[in-house]
Design a protein around this nucleic acid. Structure first.
Lengths: 221, 221
DNA sequence: GATATATCTTTACTCCACTAAAAAAATTAA
DNA sequence: TTAATTTTTTTAGTGGAGTAAAGATATATC
């Protein structure tokens, strides 16, 4: 049909024609799925619709992704690299104030999420990741979470080095704990259609402010 | 078939026969659903199976609960009163140590959950509550969450009054924030089949310890 | 006791996710 | 160019959630 042509300086070693066809199909399916899910929602989109738009048969989609939710999770896993890169940019030079740093971290995740999929589709995604946490694509999603938690810890390490957090603050665990908190607020955010990003932002600042205000009165001996 | 019999000292003023029949059917359906879900899991249980066990037709179940997940959420909402009562018992006299109080709060929720349904069914429940957060039964579930958060705040208020938390600790927000954290850890707990309660208990203690250790270095003016 | 009314069951149906296997097409290897 | 191999499509199905409406039955009302 069209000649393959050598690609002298292509970044990849360039695999066989079959491999290229496959990754093209993958790309088309993912793209079609994202379009249709965003346009009609998860339930109202049928595999048949996606197949038609991607110009493959529905059985091919099942061969590639197993189930409809498998396709959804694969789709989200694709956006990983973009997000972790954005967070890395923050990590390079985080705001000095811990409240600001945490709020920026959370806002970056929220904005990225909404630019990629609608809230209703995100609800399906979170739900699927909870149910299929042990499946292949479920694990890919969990991996992103762990990476993000690690990055938040790194931000706190940096702030502590700069002298904005007391030396006895356990930044490693704090990063993991606050990431969990962020996650809970994110779920809350996508669970309510008319909950504005700014409102969640305020909640999150209140959260961390309350946490920084908390301290124990040592027991008398 | 079998006579209904008067119930001379029934606790309720006892409405008409039709009303009683309805609430009996509700009870039977909920009971049957819980049994079947626990035994075979959510997906492998069909509405037909539940209907048979509850001795009603499947259409009746749809009339009562709308959807299969609606039935699941209704089922869970039923266990509400029991849980809030148990937490109230803690509230009456919480441990003096904040770490212990928080750990006990979380453990009570976990234990209650597992005594009621299996982890796989809980995964479906959480997933359903995220997807159908705006439906009738989804809201009932959300209401429980708000009540629990309030109760945790109350525990902290009590500890502060007893002088175990510094007066400038914002206990209201702290209760809400730590409840969100607890919720995230609970989801993690039910998401992984062989994650032991004791392990999550340790995580949770680490969380709150790190939070209490965290404090900001004031910026120089 | 007869009639009106509410409620449940039966029946017949649609829709869609998902599967198995045969048939068709294209790529690779010779 | 032909044969072997891989992969996709076609076809034909299953199963279960959910629905609409007619018919059956029990409760409430008079």
């Amino acid at each position: 049909m069209w000649h393959t042509g050598d690609q002298p300086n292509g970044p990849e070693p360039m695999s066989s024609l079959r491999e290229r066809q496959k990754s093209n199909r993958r790309r088309n399916i993912i793209q079609a799925a994202r379009d249709q899910f965003s346009m009609y929602g998860f339930d109202a989109t049928t595999i048949e619709m996606i197949a038609e738009r991607a110009e493959v048969s529905s059985v091919t989609i099942y061969n590639y992704y197993g189930t409809k939710t498998g396709l959804l999770l694969a789709l989200v896993a694709e956006s990983d690299t973009l997000l972790t890169e954005r967070i890395d940019a923050i990590l390079a030079d985080p705001p000095d104030d811990i409240v600001e740093a945490f709020a920026l971290f959370a806002a970056t995740i929220r904005d990225h999420a909404l630019s990629f999929l609608t809230k209703p589709v995100w609800r399906q995604t979170i739900a699927a990741s909870i149910i299929e946490g042990n499946s292949h694509f479920g694990r890919a999603y969990a991996r992103l979470d762990r990476e993000l938690a690690r990055q938040l810890s790194q931000i706190f390490v940096k702030l502590q080095r700069r002298g904005h957090l007391t030396p006895d603050t356990n930044v490693d665990v704090l990063g993991e704990s606050l990431f969990q908190l962020q996650n809970a607020r994110f779920i809350q955010f996508i669970s309510i259609d008319d909950l504005k990003s700014e409102t969640v932002d305020r909640y999150m600042r209140e959260d961390i402010a309350a946490i920084l205000s908390a301290s124990r009165v040592p027991a008398k001996t």
